[in-house]
Design a protein around this nucleic acid. Structure first.
Lengths: 347, 347
DNA sequence: TGAATTTATGAAAACATTTGCAATACTATT
DNA sequence: AATAGTATTGCAAATGTTTTCATAAATTCA
């Protein structure tokens, strides 16, 4: 039961114990059909007895796959990516891969460094969030000829395979929802958009949608807030304190929207009667705040699962064909948005 | 600039390009002080030109460290562990390690499988959440003689090194806070405690604290809810609908507490006047809900960072000495708990 | 100036596997 | 019974690195 030769249980130890050659042991693992069932049994017993665990590093060196996939996200911390990481992890696990996870804090130079780091570990593929990456990153991926994937965003024109949703459309849908309810005076709370194409796509689509109705958003109606409930809450308080307040707030994502909601509640405003709020994302928890948050659902779990499946297929396939998957968005109307047409103080 | 010998850039290719031996190239990476600065320069130029990236699998095979640390969490999805994962990841990254992440969904048999999987990748250490693991897992760790760490929980008696907080104390503190405010009729909402020592420690400590004041909690005052805002919201609604409602709710963690808060708000109850609510954890966002959630802070970020630092030290040290770190808890009083002594309808 | 160090480099073995090739032992076919 | 094929196994080379040992060149010291 115990491992006597302490710390020296390799394939040849197993071979010796089973009285066969190392090649045969290797084959039992990798091509079991090529070895006699009786021999296989002997070997498995030896494996059990010695507590042998295969060394994937040694396989990797041999040109075999390492069995790892790298995922690089901006941040693990926020609700935003936790769901997609979990789904991706589960999905690749099913295909026998392990997840090497790294984060870069929205810094594209660090993203590059992380890709390099993962390449040192000879990951079989690397998945990035978003479509915006540094020149160096793209060059590295191309040069090293490593399977790569962009998740979260979708674009027809993506240079790499991608699985995600169209963030422009998300922005557009959010704007349209508010417009349909009659809102014309809309406040915008978005994060800094440098190095964050999700945010910038959403914002530009919102501005376009508004512009098409001849609505321009003055500077004092725009605020920047990072993806943090507390900071968004603060920023919203400031926005609402200044000037006459808008009738609706369109937020860069649900984290910000929650901050906005709490800020409004703190100021004693009634949502949605005094102020409508819409987010983007539909994160875990958005359904449950009171009132429930109206938002554009980005199907994180679907994206993660699908990305994992397609990517592992791609990696293990003999002649991989490029792919792009666009996941559907949906406007989820809950309690934080209401019609403007009958304001309590209408004439 | 381009990689001509396509797909065959190893250390000897670099050596050839720099007109030195492979040993010298290896040394430039691992013991730069042993090689002539001029030669080093030549080699670095060759590395640049060929786009060479070290192969850690090949190092690993040689008995060097793999440079990876495995972290196995119950779930990535919830706010609960996202913070600690992020901190741990950043922390080990600083020491040059990469993170192999796996999750088991609160299933200790899957935890065992994940440890095995990570061992195949020859991680230099494996960190687990909590102190409760299957026999097989402990045996495996011992047998393979792999550095291991338990995070999140603290116990003097832990079999492995640990970095975390005392969950019993957390439960005790939460109960004491409510008792100090005069509450005697307290509802309990906890998750299923099988395979989850965090939850079971908290719950038993709460019951003890109450028992020491001769308070027993009747069955209809206890509800089970998983770590999900929406399911906790539902469970709380049920609990509050049945019977006369308690004056306070003590929740197994902040996710549940948020669900409870939203449920109360939905029922039109005023928190804390009609009902006090306390959570455990102080997750991101707990400070920002309206009113702010009173809770027992478990310093997730500190735990993750400290765990990463101590563990990498431990792994890289020549004669590692066992360690245990107990992180301080703190009762954070915000807006969801209030005094019972002056109920609006007091006699 | 010669001996004794020190510095810089290369050759080769080692690490734990996989795999192509060859050898052997069976089984089926005529 | 001879032949052709198939199933099973082992040998040895290969994978990309690190490290020990040896050697050569350069420096220091007397």
């Amino acid at each position: 039961m115990v491992n006597f030769q302490k710390g020296k249980v390799d394939i040849v130890a197993v071979a010796k114990a089973a009285k066969v050659s190392a090649s045969t042991v290797s084959r039992t693992f990798n091509h079991p059909d090529l070895v006699n069932p009786a021999t296989r049994k002997k070997i498995n017993r030896a494996v059990q007895k010695l507590g042998y665990i295969r060394n994937r590093a040694a396989q990797t060196i041999h040109g075999r796959r390492s069995g790892t996939i790298g995922l690089i996200v901006p941040t693990i911390n926020h609700a935003i990516f936790a769901e997609v990481i979990q789904a991706f992890s589960d999905s690749i696990d099913k295909a026998g891969f392990s997840l090497l996870l790294a984060s870069h804090g929205y810094d594209l130079d660090r993203e590059y460094a992380m890709v390099r780091k993962l390449l040192e570990h000879r990951v079989d593929g690397v998945a990035l969030v978003g479509l915006q990456h540094s020149e160096a990153t793209i060059r590295l991926i191309e040069q090293q000829d490593i399977p790569a994937l962009e998740i979260w965003n979708y674009a027809e024109t993506s240079v790499l395979p991608c699985v995600g949703a169209d963030n422009r459309q998300a922005g557009y849908m959010a704007a349209e929802h508010l417009l349909a309810l009659g809102h014309r005076d809309i406040g915008l709370i978005f994060p800094d958009t440098t190095g964050n194409d999700r945010a910038s796509h959403r914002l530009s689509a919102v501005l376009e949608a508004l512009a098409s109705r001849n609505i321009t958003v003055p500077g004092h109606r725009k605020t920047e807030a990072p993806y943090s409930v507390s900071q968004a809450k603060q920023a919203t308080s400031d926005l609402l304190a200044r000037h006459k307040r808008p009738t609706a707030l369109l937020c860069g994502n649900d984290v910000i929207a929650q901050g906005a909601l709490f800020a409004a509640q703190k100021l004693g405003l009634s949502v949605p009667d005094d102020l409508s709020i819409i987010g983007i994302g539909d994160f875990k928890g958005s359904a449950d705040v009171e009132p429930g948050l109206t938002t554009i659902r980005i199907p994180a779990e679907t994206i993660g699962t699908l990305a994992g499946e397609r990517f592992t297929d791609y990696i293990t396939s003999d002649d991989p064909t490029n792919f792009r998957v666009c996941c559907e968005l949906k406007c989820i109307v809950r309690g934080t948005t209401g019609n403007i047409s009958t304001p309590p103080d209408a004439p």
